[in-house]
Design a protein around this nucleic acid. Structure first.
Lengths: 213, 213
DNA sequence: ATTTTTATTTTTCAGTCGATAAATAACGCC
DNA sequence: GGCGTTATTTATCGACTGAAAAATAAAAAT
């Protein structure tokens, strides 16, 4: 059976796009689509949203899985800003300032429905790129944060202790969960993101000092 | 085409269970099943895991959706402990002690793969019970915590301020995210849950005092 | 203008999906 | 032992799924 089109509708006029352009369009809209509907949603649903027939997708991607992998790549890799790491290590400013600036910048990227939902969906699927992302966060963000806190307290810098990194994860997770509540659960959330971050950062830094006695 | 069974296999012997017992079994295993495979997974997959044919499910539940609703009910409602609320309000002990005890008890219930995954899956689907659960947490847990902190600081108790509740959400989310990392992302996580909770609680209480200047 | 290339659609397939109706057999009762 | 109840299976439906193959048409090349 052919993919139905309401009776009187004229055959869709073919917009022929250069293949690289079309491909980019597919990936971009696939991110939107799968973010909203989940990865189990059909390629036909995606094609309809694109205004294109379903088999055309298979001209550009060998399988649905391959398309989904490009979606991951787009969200996880392309939106990571390498300068974040540098920002945290800039010792010309107090660590509290750096952390505030970092988390404001970071959440500007990840606090949107698309990013959050792709992240959670892929996490539940247990895909490898998700695990790698967590390691990236730990190595590039949280361990440096712990080391910077050590340095600022005049403590010797060795390797970050596990329980200190764990404590940083709790701050990180707390901020992250604020985005989840806002964008996934759509519960009414305090509008002042900057304040929430400032409070979380302050509590973390004081808590860390407290922990060390 | 009939639901295949490898050629030589004898017809499955029928275990006839009393209907209420069978029903309980179905719901219990459906929780396991959907937690692991997601709600998009097939009723045939569930039936196979139950060692039962797929149409039998429809003797007990009018539709897949109805079965899923019972799964929600089982996880969200049945595992909530009403005594949690009382625990937080017990002013014969320091608030820090109460919060530690509460979060140790609470995470004993929710820190398991089943609960966590059902929670995240249903959250992404945007089902109503998830929203109601978030309100429950806010009203029965977080707002009381904020009020208890006020009381302990000798401050007048009025209604909890939004930014204070938000701050409590960050602690709560941080602890929750610790479970997510452990059970969903299966990243190696500090084994000492009790320590993580103690640190988070201490940082929260000090941070709250700090916030108020 | 004709040919070549290739982006796009049409058609189709073999599975899978949730769900229904009818056939079967295990158990309780007498 | 025979009978009735009902838990369970068998068989089937129509819609939908990812994917392949072939037909078509728009653009580029000649």
């Amino acid at each position: 059976m052919k993919d139905e089109r309401p009776e009187g509708t004229p055959a869709p006029r073919r917009r022929r796009l250069p293949s690289d352009e079309r491909r980019r369009e597919f990936v971009t809209r696939a991110v939107e689509f799968f973010a909203e509907e989940g990865f189990e949603s059909s390629t036909r649903g995606l094609a309809k949203r694109l205004g294109v027939t379903q088999p055309l997708l298979y001209r550009y991607f060998p399988s649905k899985e391959d398309l989904i992998h490009e979606v991951y790549e787009t969200v996880y890799v392309n939106r990571w800003r390498p300068e974040w790491a540098g920002l945290i290590g800039d010792r010309s400013r107090p660590l509290a300032d750096r952390l505030n600036e970092f988390y404001n910048a970071y959440t500007e990227v990840i606090f949107n429905r698309e990013w959050m939902r792709i992240y959670l969906f892929s996490g539940l699927k247990g895909v490898d790129i998700n695990r790698r992302y967590m390691q990236l966060v730990r190595q590039r963000i949280l361990e440096p944060i712990v080391m910077e806190a050590r340095a600022e307290a005049g403590l010797p810098e060795a390797v970050p202790r596990d329980d200190e990194v764990e404590f940083a994860w709790v701050m990180h997770g707390g901020i992250f969960y604020y985005g989840v509540r806002d964008l996934i659960y759509e519960s009414c959330v305090s509008a002042d993101k900057q304040q929430v971050i400032a409070d979380a950062v302050a509590a973390f830094l004081h808590g860390l000092a407290l922990k060390r006695g």
